[in-house]
Design a protein around this nucleic acid. Structure first.
Lengths: 331, 331
DNA sequence: TTGTACGCGTTATCAG
DNA sequence: CTGATAACGCGTACAA
């Protein structure tokens, strides 16, 4: 592990001269520079970034905390973020909280020991007060979660309007009996999607039918269960709004299993626009969630916090409907 | 940003005494300890890990480099690794090479400036010599790639035997015309799967038919193309071995699209056992690839390199057939 | 153009 | 039990 000192000794100069060569700053005699460069190569010297970090008290590391990296939604966000960070010379320290508040806090707390310059929390589960606490101590960005406190920087798209638009679309296609495959009721984004569903019905003077709303987990299997649930009903909806694509896929899969056709027998709209939605048959009509851009924006916003001269490009942070083949017009 | 010195000043003691309290080492008078602890709390002191790292010249960081975090295969491996690392007090620095050799090397090279204690490369693309270079400078582990050099630590499962077993299984079910959906020909694991296919045919004295082998990418769409390719043939195979599940899924999807039944009309076997394979209908018969365990093993092996007292648990690093519903016995 | 001294925050050593 | 000192590797400020 060779250091500046080793080079200096070998080249018969002071460490400072070597440092100047390494950083390419200040005046150095061309001859000595050449000599030093040779020695550097010979001894395979590389600056110790830890020492540098200590000196300038910044690390060029950003901590990213996600609930579950196996979920493609977060994987794509992370990719958006790391790509940008790397372009600006920052490394990503990555941690998976397994969706547990305890882990989440433990991870973020460690960041307070100056191993990173900033923290990005993706869809965190912790209570609001914790973000105030963190934000007071280190540059913090919260992604995909609405934060009341003005003190905490965050990126959040309200999913309600686009969910409403999705249901509006079903109604425009002649459907009035619309089922909700509602997912878990303790995740904010999901609740906003439900709100959109309710708002659309209300706007069209369609009464809400409690049995038409099915609440469950967030997975493919939950879509399967949803189908089974609705299948047992005597008078069942002609169209379904699933609050995420995975459930919509499960629903469709099970419909096929039972010999039903989509969109012939039932229409389905999902939410998120995951990769698989485009690939199945019929391709799923859904609402795009620009997670990659959210990730990139998070990176830029963090970079800007650390260096106000950084330009944050414009991203269109909107959910957009993607019309494909899973809805039939019955009007 | 409060330091030991601040605490010391406030408590009227030396930094060393404070340090002892913080690290809970050595003798400290109970009274002074209490006082110091109070001041620590009051000033919200946290040790500077960078300074510690500099001193002990180790960072407790491990660098993980994957070709693409959006690929669930890698996401799961990473999860296996980070979970173990975290249990042992290590953080994961994460980087995505986008599958490009240039990025891969640039990332790993940065690791040489002592920001991490070790490097784990997942399915790297670089040439063999580079691993020797890296391995000579920093603890290195290469995962999911066979390495000739004995000097480079690696974790690798030869996929050939299990691929062979998969094709054996088709043959045992009465199939003799077996198509290969072969994926890309520049990825080692994939080539080994093809070798298994060939070996099985040979072992059963079934001649190899060139037109029965279709080479393509690695994605869902490639499975779709494969179906279209075979569909055009006059005399087509009754069974297919896809060298990964994603392609098998695309194949099945397209078969359904064309009104064909699996396994009624064609039998299909995949490889990898991704989550989706269990969920579709018919559930896919495939070969499990223990990526999560590979990830965990990678972590343990790295930990052991850094600290020889670490115990590496036994993992059964084998591909295992998962029999589900996509193969029909036509004997 | 080159070198000296000091500090970044922590800890090991040794003396008191 | 406590404290002074040096060291980790680098870079800023100031001299020479």
């Amino acid at each position: 592990m060779t250091t500046l000192k080793d080079i200096a000794k070998r080249a018969n100069v002071s460490v400072m001269t070597v440092s100047r060569v390494v950083k390419n700053s200040g005046y150095v005699n061309t001859e000595t520079r050449k000599l030093i460069e040779a020695v550097i190569k010979e001894l395979d010297y590389r600056p110790n970034e830890i020492a540098r970090s200590l000196h300038r008290s910044s690390t060029n590391n950003i901590l990213l905390v996600v609930p579950d990296i196996e979920n493609p939604f977060f994987a794509e966000m992370i990719k958006g973020t790391t790509t940008v960070l790397r372009q600006y010379g920052y490394q990503s320290i990555f941690a998976d909280s397994d969706g547990e508040i305890g882990n989440e806090k433990a991870i973020a707390d460690r960041a307070l020991s100056r191993i990173v310059d900033g923290v990005i929390l993706y869809c965190p589960r912790a209570e609001a007060a914790y973000f105030d606490f963190l934000s007071a101590r280190i540059p913090l960005l919260v992604v995909d979660r609405r934060i009341a406190s003005h003190a905490v920087d965050h990126i959040y798209i309200d999913n309600k309007p686009s969910a409403q638009a999705a249901v509006d679309y079903l109604i425009a296609n002649g459907h009035r009996d619309i089922g909700l495959i509602g997912g878990p009721q303790n995740v904010l984004a999901n609740l906003r999607r439900k709100s959109g569903y309710l708002a659309s019905l209300k706007a069209h003077d369609i009464p809400v039918t409690d049995q038409y709303m099915f609440f469950c987990g967030f997975e493919f299997e939950d879509g399967v269960s949803a189908f089974d649930y609705f299948w047992r009903m005597e008078r069942r909806p002609s169209a379904y709004f699933a609050t995420n694509d995975l459930m919509a896929l499960g629903f469709i899969q099970q419909a096929h299993e039972k010999g039903l056709a989509i969109p012939g027998d039932f229409s389905v709209v999902g939410f998120d626009n995951i990769a698989m939605s485009r690939l199945i048959s019929p391709a799923l009509t859904t609402v795009d969630n620009p997670r990659r851009d959210m990730g990139a924006l998070a990176a830029f916003r963090m970079l800007r916090k650390l260096d106000p001269t950084v330009e944050v490009p414009q991203f269109e942070m909107t959910n957009r409907m993607v019309i494909r083949g899973s809805v039939r017009n019955i009007a």
